[in-house]
Amino acid sequence: MVEVTLWGSLAAAAEGNSKIEIEAKNIRELFERLSERFPRLEPLMTRGIAVAIDGTIYRDTWSKELPTGAEIYLLPRLAGG
């Protein structure tokens, strides 16, 4: 079980929950469980979400493990210049 924090706009689509406890081993499972639990997150997840684990941002490594007790924060997937 990990605790996940959602940024403001994402929380609005998750029935106002800014913190969610969820059973997930890695980023892929986290996205699957979130979509199942909060279908309104789907469009935001399609647009792209990054995951910060203890401050390090992961955009594409969906196999990245979510360590117990780690700070897990969902962020929009960003573009650079």
């Binding site: 924090t5 940024w7 910060a52 203890d54 401050g55 390090t56 700070e71 924060y73 962020l75």
Partner: peptide
């Protein structure tokens, strides 16, 4: 804790 969310390394 960064203003955009996560904790900095």
């Amino acid at each position: 804790k960064a203003s955009y969310g996560p904790v900095y390394g």
